[in-house]
Design a binder for these strands. Structure first.
Length: 274
DNA sequence: GTCCATGTTCTTTA
DNA sequence: CTAAAGAACATGGA
């Protein structure tokens, strides 16, 4: 479910009800969603209040009044909701946190690729996490892309190169920039990297304005769906006509991930040999 | 039964 | 040695 726009939308919808609130009960149904495995998460957060909630990459970072932090990653199928205690608890609800105002934060995740990571006083990221795309300057993107020979599609999915993009927004951004997804990252021209940086920012901002993409079951913390999926130009649109040129959208697999693009609007540049 | 899925990490290969 | 490709993880829906 979650890439930068969806994760940010969840954060935005959590803040009004949870900021400043005190944790009065914690129910951890599955201990194996917590890392590191040997900590007692309920004991660490019970009685604490929430000083801040923010996003870093695809992480939802909670800062407590003690300045200690933990983050929730939604993985592929994770959902984070707030609601009254009386609300029905859905399947695969692994963690519930009740606050003094009666709100209950619930974390559900059928596939369990997501989870909770206790940071303590460690920073909200580490040296393996790439920069935030919305703050990134084109020259820095170009510098980072120049270090790898992989396909641009795979490079943009690498969270250590740039943080927050996933399969949807990489495909949409490459379409917006007119770049073929198999183009080698280190072969982008200066103009292409500038165009790509602009395309990434514009795509993310538009997606944020539409509160993310709901494909299957993504919802914000209040259960509201996003709308950006209606504006996808290539993702999930295999064999439909391109919105610009009417050529059929093509789907290929790159690095094990479905990749959607318009072969006419995103021509493959000249390759060595072939 | 088959294939596919908004992600990350560990293992294998080149 | 390192970079990159591939497999694995767990579950559900079409």
């Amino acid at each position: 479910m979650p890439e930068l726009p969806e994760v940010q939308t969840v954060v935005n919808s959590l803040r009004p009800t949870l900021l400043g609130r005190t944790i009065v009960a914690v129910g951890l149904a599955r201990r194996d969603i917590v890392e590191p495995a040997d900590i007692d998460l309920p004991a660490l957060i019970l009685g604490r209040s929430v000083r801040d909630i923010h996003r870093r990459g695809k992480r939802i970072v909670f800062t407590l009044d003690t300045a200690q932090r933990f983050y929730i990653h939604l993985g592929m199928s994770g959902r984070l909701t707030v609601g009254p205690e009386s609300e029905a608890v859905g399947p695969h609800t692994h963690l519930q946190i009740r606050f003094e105002n009666g709100a209950v934060l619930r974390f559900r995740d059928a596939r369990r690729f997501g989870g909770v990571w206790w940071l303590g006083s460690a920073p909200d990221d580490d040296d393996t996490m790439g920069p935030e795309p919305l703050d990134l300057r084109p020259a820095e993107l170009a510098r980072r892309l120049a270090r790898t020979r992989r396909a641009i599609k795979s490079a943009l999915l690498d969270q250590s190169l740039i943080a927050g993009l996933g399969n949807i927004y990489v495909d949409e951004s490459l379409f917006a920039a007119g770049i073929h997804p198999l183009t080698r990252a280190d072969r982008l021209t200066r103009q292409q990297s500038v165009k790509l940086m602009r395309a990434i920012k514009a795509t993310l901002r538009r997606a944020l304005n539409h509160r993310g993409s709901t494909l299957r079951d993504y919802r914000d913390a209040n259960g509201e769906a996003g709308n950006f999926q209606k504006l996808h130009r290539v993702y999930g649109r295999e064999s439909e006509p391109c919105c610009k040129c009417k050529a059929p959208i093509t789907r290929i697999v790159i690095g094990g991930r479905s990749t959607h693009f318009c072969p006419a609007c995103q021509p493959r540049g000249k390759r060595k040999r072939g």
